[in-house]
Design a protein around this nucleic acid. Sequence first.
DNA 1: CGCTCCCATGTAAACGATTACATTCACTTT
DNA 2: AAAGTGAATGTAATCGTTTACATGGGAGCG
Lengths: 367, 367
Amino acid sequence: MVASVKQERLWERAMDEIGQKRRLRPGDGQARAARIQDVARLADVSTATVSRALATPDRVSPEARARVFDAIAKTGYVPNPAARSLRSQKTYMVLVVLPDLANTFFSRILRGIEETLFDAGYGMIISDLDGSPEKEAHFAAFTAAGRVDGAILLNGHLFGQSRDGKGTPANLNIPLVALCEAIPGADIPQIEIDNRAAARRMTQHLASLGHRRIAYVSGPPENVLEHERFKGYREGLRAWDLPFDPALVLPGDYTLDSGAQAGQFLLAKPERPTAVFCTSDEMAIGLVRTLRSAGLRVPDDISVAGFDDIEFAAAAQPALTTVHQPRRELGQAAASTLIDLLQGRMAPKRIRLKTDLIIRDSVAALR
Amino acid sequence: MVASVKQERLWERAMDEIGQKRRLRPGDGQARAARIQDVARLADVSTATVSRALATPDRVSPEARARVFDAIAKTGYVPNPAARSLRSQKTYMVLVVLPDLANTFFSRILRGIEETLFDAGYGMIISDLDGSPEKEAHFAAFTAAGRVDGAILLNGHLFGQSRDGKGTPANLNIPLVALCEAIPGADIPQIEIDNRAAARRMTQHLASLGHRRIAYVSGPPENVLEHERFKGYREGLRAWDLPFDPALVLPGDYTLDSGAQAGQFLLAKPERPTAVFCTSDEMAIGLVRTLRSAGLRVPDDISVAGFDDIEFAAAAQPALTTVHQPRRELGQAAASTLIDLLQGRMAPKRIRLKTDLIIRDSVAALR
DNA sequence: CGCTCCCATGTAAACGATTACATTCACTTT
DNA sequence: AAAGTGAATGTAATCGTTTACATGGGAGCG
């Protein structure tokens, strides 16, 4: 892996030199790649020694090792992954299962995952479930076929199971890690933030600024994150001896549109809250937009808080007070936990990363 | 090739049916997956017939085919991808090369790619180059090793080459497609929008509203998109007989921060423009923020236009007038073009998708 | 000196599919 | 009736590694 740049250059040259036609399509100038045989012959050792020089360098003599590396450089040899995988039953590939690839919340998490996997020599295959059971079945089969060594699940449930744990989980026999949305009942490592504590903290922050009527825009009702955040919201109210008013709980599903929708509900209420806690930034941005176009000023007339701290939270008008999720770190933690499992090391059952309260301009003290 | 989708389906159905049987009892060892041998024995045919029943069903007698499918369902057989790939030199995997996975612009494109590949039975591997030559070399080797059948390049250059075409492109010998950012000089299909026409149209739109001093916030100077959009900007000015003023061209790199930075430059200018054309929505949003915090009203005091029409363009304050890029369709077009190549069909050398001028609230007529 | 032990290496058997080539058999065709 | 044709299937080589097992030789030890 370290020598890859140099190898690459040499490889091209070697390919040109060999220039041997492959029997694919006539007239196609496909050159054949060097095989382990070629390296072995050139280094005057057996294929076994070449393989060992690569996998366990300390088990071959320094002289042989040097000759092998030399031959590898000369031929530009790159091991054939299919052959390697066929024999060793390892693919060095990880599946990342997402509920929705188009959701901007995931992109930075993906990057955290990708970079960690990359450093450990693993590739990343992405599956965007997109709410389709058909795709889910496909990827279950895909996984079962042994195309990946492990998987990171961001979708809140196992293959073949619904979110509430109904149904029999597909038996994949590979290491799994749940990221962000914990999978209740599954005996796999869970990487997440403390959603409850974060929601409680935000609620208390709003209360501490004098707000007594604090609305809550929820996530989808079946969502584990939602349950936790809702609990935190109620705990926050209780800590400040504020009454819980079900009329102040508005349905949402984390999207911009549902936030805008919640804004409409809010405007229609006879007695308006003075602060709104949205459980996603997208909803907060949608909500602010609705409120402003109705002539309300944020935060002067009404405070709005978000959750996630996506890129646009800081650029929104007004800049959003929100809960920061360490998305990149979440991805990294999930990936390195999975790698631990893949390499037979112990891994913690649960990792909870710290969130931060980000105070910007969309929340103000009650006048 | 054509049968792959159907094959997948069958495996899935088979999986479902024998789901119970394959599940491990607690404490049980690893259950061995069924091989083609097992299916052949059960169906009382040779392995060749099983293979043919799957790949070319019409070359097998209906009776044998039925017995084979039956046996597949009974055993829950799923072909081993490594073995298949080793022998047939096909992986049914496509590499998607991105300059920056965390950039929200790409997520919807990825989805378009993913769904199209999925429908054709291909999987998607993502490589986030992240500006690192090391990663680039790695993925070049990865590709050269034959882990993918083809690649979609969104990064504007070939492996081993810089953006301006310097250096020898890696000799990968697999079908490639360039998406969004055309690769000049490369003899591969290019899927893109007409950046020049779109930029010209937006510039003319601003001019038609009476603006005579129209600033331009650019992309990175080495970027092909940037060159095209800049040409369009100048053409738009010329069409309205407006002078080109280099002082009104501000450097940017498509990010939020560079837009905010451009705003600072703008505020410092003695003679301010009345409209600003930002070549990305992110920059427009960053710019608006800077302008507003300096007390300027958008669009009353200054108009701001964007490019891309990302999700937040509509939710921004004020909602952004911008150029809509059909991102999902771009992804789909690139993927299906690549699939055509992979399956030996002809593919167009260049596909240009239509853009739309989206008129919202951030641009107004000059008072 | 003879015996063990271990290290470095080689030999060759997997891994699980695809597919070129061979074979069989039922039908035409001449 | 002999030969030719083509469809259905089987046989076995092949893809390029990894790795269990075998081997040979040098060091250590009594």
